[in-house]
């Protein structure tokens, strides 16, 4: 077996600031990897580079044998709508707010060639159920949904084509704490059920503990510590990780 996604020597500078400073990363099939760190630590930049949305100054990103950074736009978009998924922090960035829930879920199916209205609709209704939204809301517009429902709809829209790798950028970021727990549990169950590989960017240590098999701690564009989730969180070695972990406990 080989890693599904493999990055080596990623460097990216914004002026004098090193957003990525020699980052290596592997994600294996079925593995959930969390990148934690405070705002500005480089974790969102890393997510953008790994998903081909931003080009690094140096380094390589290989997905399933394909060079992501050397890929043309067509190939990258094809990956984006078939083997990859992207869950944004703000559901507005990941949903079409003027299109019904069913249309939102169906879009990836149609983009990959589905042409049977009834089947698309049935798949959309099934996915609404799976993300715990009443299928009666199939024709409702996302703007009539609560924030938690919108985020669940975004997840349904992303997972409907069974991607192999899902990038998640602070998926619980804008939600109330009570809503976060439900969403995290839903993600945890779906990820396990579908055997997804996930790259999760979060500053929420509890979310990382619940979802991730492995954690990378980033600071100033560098991975300062990484390993098994419970080992990194229970026996943190780097001063910055110790600070992160104790800040959470104190809160």
């Amino acid at each position: 077996m080989s890693p599904l996604l493999s990055a080596r020597g990623l460097e990216l500078r914004f002026g004098r600031i090193a957003a990525l400073d020699g980052v290596d990363l592997d994600i294996w099939p079925g593995e959930v990897v969390a990148i934690v760190g405070e705002s500005g630590s480089g974790k969102t930049t890393l997510l953008r580079v790994l998903s081909g949305l931003a080009a690094p100054d140096a380094g390589s990103v290989i997905f399933d044998g394909q060079d992501v950074l050397g890929m043309n736009e067509a190939a990258r978009r094809h990956l984006m709508r078939t083997q990859w998924g992207f869950v944004h922090q703000n559901p507005r960035d990941g949903l079409r707010m003027g299109v019904s829930a069913g249309g939102n879920i169906g879009e990836r199916l149609m983009a990959t060639g589905a042409r049977h209205y009834g089947n698309i609709r049935a798949a959309a209704a099934d996915w609404l159920r799976r993300v715990e939204i009443d299928p009666e809301r199939l024709d409702a517009l996302p703007r009539t949904f609560s924030g938690g429902m919108q985020q669940r709809l975004q997840i349904a829209r992303t997972l409907v084509t069974h991607p192999r790798l899902v990038f998640m950028d602070e998926p619980t970021g804008g939600l109330d704490v009570s809503v976060q727990a439900r969403l995290l549990d839903l993600i945890r169950a779906l990820v396990a059920e579908l055997g997804l590989s996930v790259l999760l960017v979060t500053h929420d240590i509890a979310a990382a503990r619940l979802l991730a098999h492995r954690i990378l701690v980033m600071r100033h564009g560098q991975v300062v510590e990484q390993g098994l989730t419970d080992r990194v969180l229970d026996d943190p070695q780097h001063p910055y990780t110790q600070l992160l972990v104790t800040s959470v406990l104190a809160a």
């Binding site: 736009e73 067509a74 978009r77 709508r81 079409r96 299109v99 019904s100 069913g102 249309g103 169906g106 879009e107 990836r108 149609m110 983009a111 990959t112 042409r115 209205y117 698309i120 609709r121 199939l138 024709d139």
Partner: peptide, 22 residues
């Protein structure tokens, strides 16, 4: 333009889907 270049036309079908749904 990019959508044409990449024949990325799922969105057009979304519009037709919405028509039928409505």
């Amino acid at each position: 333009k990019r959508m044409h270049a990449l024949a990325d036309y799922g969105l057009m079908h979304v519009k037709l889907y919405e028509d039928i749904a409505r």
